[in-house]
Design a protein around this nucleic acid. Structure first.
Lengths: 153, 153
DNA sequence: TATTGTTATACTCTATAACTATA
DNA sequence: TATAGTTATAGAGTATAACAATA
């Protein structure tokens, strides 16, 4: 310990910014995620994509990319990995032969089933510092903020 | 548009998770940040470091890294960039010759002055979807959640 | 033996331009 | 000419191991 270096740090101006707090929380929640899912067989991004495909079978690459805020080239990479690992199928549609409909495979369905329970438990555990009411308020405010930003700040 | 692909996407299970919403917001806020500061002369990380150093002059690398959740090797890279660009000084302390005290240069002080106003305005603008009361509630909940996670979830 | 800062390295995520095949 | 998906590529962020200097 260096006596000249402040022991307790003053981050006051940063902590008044929503953006800073969101970023720190994103890092903390990723850490918590990986502490539990240490094998890293599936990343949060992979899981989000699988869950979105399950609830929207036949969704196309581009639509999925827009929804999850992932660039299309990066979505291709993500889908390639999930395809290679056998979690989904690309079905070429009859109407427009450019577009591809995404569907979960049996393995994908099973993987989502298994992970969904674990992940919801993890999310609940990670937010244990909040009461149930606070958690709901937080979700409401986060979604409201996101909606405002999505439609052009 | 492919009629077989859902036009409106159902992300219900994801949107119930705090972690997902935080991640999406982090992406959206970074986008908003870069739309305004398109030149990218300074990244949010660089700015956060400068601001923290200003409010905690003489802080050491490691302490700063811990506070901002940046790994020490990556903090070295960040500090190198800020040093090269003349925003700060590394002062070797007399007591412990391993440790380095970080201080802003005159250029660094000036840069922080200029950016702080812009960034706070940007943060306010990005959160315009919320009322002032909602914004305060959100900040409170975010900090509470972060504190809980930092001291071990 | 432990700590501070560093180097080297690798992996993920993100972003942009350019390509193909279809429309 | 525009669109869907792809390829290639570059950059930033993040993570771990190992090192030198110092304690």
């Amino acid at each position: 310990m260096d006596a000249l270096s402040p022991a307790r740090i003053d981050l006051a101006p940063l902590e008044e910014m929503v953006g800073y707090n969101i970023h720190i929380l994103d890092l903390l929640l990723y850490q918590a995620f990986y502490e539990r899912f240490a094998d890293r067989a599936m990343t949060p991004g992979m899981y989000s994509a699988l869950l979105a495909i399950r609830h929207n079978p036949g969704i196309r690459h581009g639509t999925l990319a827009d929804a999850l805020l992932i660039q299309r080239p990066n979505m291709t990479t993500l889908i390639n990995r999930l395809d290679r690992d056998g979690y989904l199928e690309r079905r070429y549609t009859a109407g427009d032969r450019r577009s591809i409909a995404l569907h979960l495979s049996a393995k994908g369905e099973k993987a989502v089933d298994r992970m969904q329970t674990l992940l919801q438990a993890q999310d609940t555990k990670a937010t244990a510092a909040l009461s149930e009411k606070e958690r709901k308020t937080l979700l409401l405010l986060l979604r409201k903020l996101a909606a405002g930003l999505r439609q052009g700040a």
